[in-house]
């Protein structure tokens, strides 16, 4: 086969896969979102979705969760990655243990945390066992939105910090040791080394980790469904409700595209903020 055609031949399976399972469905969803019942092009689906009273609440909840969870995950992942990369023995074991939650589906993770927080859950048994409360409390109720929010945030942090950790550990491993030796000789403290060397040289990995994590944060669904149910509406939950409860696939497609738009916007911001100037990469 001629060398001009060969590269295209080699990437063709991926291209076909992407066309069939990403581009084609995406075109279909866009079509549904921008078409009314009569098949005419319209923005009415978007108007319906946005004017519905639950939309601002679910948008706010989704953003709040992302804002609360992602920075904590980022700090934790950075701390854990720094610790792991300084270990000589047992490094792999620790890494495996920390990444176990990644192997659990998000619904299962939600149910695990439900088992902790529900009325007959571990937390209540422990508190009453210690004599701190007289009878088990209903923690996950509409009367205690802060606890619901905290439980969801905790479950998310527990479940999805490892995805950032793995990316950051790989990124830290790419930074040559000589930079730290030079920093030692030229008088940078360990904290300064982290701020002035590790952090800037980690920008490409931070970009990947943050983009991935933020996109996943806007798609949060199963953990919220398990712990908050209808108490804590989020965008993805609304999409589900439109599609399967209200059988309004046009509105579901519209809200899915809104989530896509938000994800793209945040991705652009992250890429911009953490960009590496030309010639400044390792």
């Amino acid at each position: 086969m001629s060398s001009r055609i060969l590269p295209y031949f080699l990437i063709s399976p991926v291209v076909i896969f992407l066309l069939a399972f990403f581009i084609y469905p995406f075109v279909l969803v866009s079509q549904q979102a921008f078409q009314g019942d009569s098949g005419a092009w319209t923005l009415s689906n978007f108007q319906d979705v946005i004017s519905y009273w639950k939309f601002p609440i679910s948008l706010r909840n989704t953003l709040l969760l992302a804002v609360a969870v992602v920075p904590i995950q980022l700090s934790l992942a950075l701390l854990m990655a720094t610790m792991v990369s300084r270990m000589n023995k047992g490094r792999d074991l620790i890494l495996y243990v920390w990444t176990i939650p990644l192997g659990i589906s998000d619904l299962a993770a939600g149910i695990i945390w439900l088992a902790i927080f529900e009325q007959s859950g571990f937390l209540n048994s422990m508190l009453s066992g210690l004599g701190l409360i007289e009878r088990p409390m209903n923690l996950l109720s509409y009367q205690s939105p802060v606890i619901v929010f905290t439980a969801i945030a905790l479950a998310e942090i527990w479940r999805a910090t490892a995805i950032m950790l793995v990316i950051l550990v790989a990124g830290i491993g790419l930074i040559p040791k000589e930079y730290y030796e030079a920093a030692d000789v030229f008088g940078a403290s360990k904290w300064k080394q982290f701020i002035r060397i590790t952090f800037p040289l980690l920008r490409p990995s931070l970009q990947t980790a943050l983009v991935l994590r933020v996109i996943l944060a806007f798609e949060i669904f199963a953990v919220v469904a398990a712990l908050g149910g209808t108490l804590f509406p989020v965008l993805m939950g609304e999409t589900y409700a439109y599609q399967f409860d209200l059988l309004n696939s046009g509105a579901a497609a519209a809200i899915a595209l809104i989530i896509l738009g938000i994800s793209i916007a945040f991705t652009m911001v992250i890429l911009r903020v953490l960009r590496v100037p030309k010639g400044a990469s390792i």
Partner: peptide, 12 residues
């Protein structure tokens, strides 16, 4: 002060 074999000039 030290000069390293691989320079260790900070890329960023």
């Amino acid at each position: 002060a030290m000069v390293f074999q691989n320079y260790a000039v900070f890329p960023h």
